[in-house]
């Protein structure tokens, strides 16, 4: 028993070490100036350029057109992450609501069709999707960036399972209490789903934030670049000129991971609280 615990801890510590070290090094390196890094490589101690470097990447316009800075990209990533997560939750809740609570022809078939799309991730359908978005004139818009991504078989599946576990009597009590379909959804089902919503929000926000392929295709206008898509593009331009700004690259990378981490940390406590207190 004791032995097992020790080895467990060693494995966990190793895991933490491998995951955290690169992040810590990136952060430490991002606080030095470019020349130091160019001469000495990765830095293992904090340097004195934290504020300068982060101010530069956040507010100094870079890129080809000199129109975009880190702050704008951060904002775009935020819009994509939030739009993606909220959109997925709204769409999949409504879809699951329809499938579970309404008797319509071929409801089961509909569900399995939705479910089967799990087998067809974005990468498979990316050309037709691009084609459609382009013909709708939605290239280089936020809606073009977000809307084609928000259909979610996973989300629909999770909400369906959850709704099916809600006792029928609750629906019946609500019907007797005069709640129509919309009121039941809004007053009963959504509040009951809080935990589910938080869980799916975490997953989907991070997933949306880290999207690379789709934003690369759909945004050619630098002012719509997300962080994940923009880092490389922007650095290439910076790099060309003089000494590569590795300090700024590291700073941008750090900026790109802070919001998802915050979301996970904030919502996780919520999520656990919901799990512990949950009852139906």
């Amino acid at each position: 028993m004791k032995k097992l615990q020790i080895s467990d801890h060693i494995i966990l510590l190793l895991g933490v070490f491998f995951m955290v070290t690169p992040v810590v090094l990136a952060f430490l390196t991002s606080t030095h100036d470019a020349i130091t890094i160019y001469k000495e490589g990765i830095q293992f101690t904090p340097g004195g350029k934290f504020f300068e470097n982060y101010e530069t990447v956040l507010f100094e316009a870079g890129g080809f057109t000199k129109e975009v800075n880190g702050f704008v990209m951060l904002k775009n990533s935020m819009i994509l992450g939030l739009g993606f997560a909220v959109g997925k939750i709204v769409i999949s809740m409504l879809a699951a609501y329809a499938i579970v609570y309404f008797r319509f022809p071929m409801a089961t078939l509909c569900f399995w069709v939705i479910f089967a799309t799990l087998l067809l991730p974005l990468e498979v359908r990316i050309l037709p999707s691009y084609e459609i978005v382009q013909s709708l004139g939605m290239v280089n818009t936020y809606s073009g960036l977000i809307v084609p991504l928000i259909a979610s078989a996973t989300g629909t599946f999770f909400f369906r399972q959850f709704f099916m576990s809600v006792p029928d009597e609750l629906l019946e009590a609500a019907r007797i209490d005069g709640a129509g379909p919309w009121k039941f959804f809004k007053d009963i089902l959504v509040p009951l789903s809080q935990t589910m919503i938080a869980a799916i929000f975490i997953i989907m926000f991070v997933y949306g934030w880290n999207q690379y392929l789709w934003p690369t295709l759909i945004t050619t206008d630098e002012s719509l670049f997300t962080l994940v898509r923009g880092i490389k593009q922007i650095l290439q331009v910076w790099v060309g000129a003089q000494i590569p700004d590795f300090n700024e690259a590291m700073a941008l990378a750090i900026l790109a991971i802070v919001p998802p981490v915050l979301i996970v940390v904030i919502f996780q406590s919520w999520f656990v609280k919901g799990l512990v207190e949950s009852d139906k």
Binding site: P167, E169, L170, E172, A173, A174, D187, I188, P191, L192, Q194, D279, K280
Partner: peptide, 9 residues
């Protein structure tokens, strides 16, 4: 109802 069916939230 038998299981009361109170709105838990």
């Amino acid at each position: 109802f038998q299981n009361y069916a109170l709105y838990p939230h």
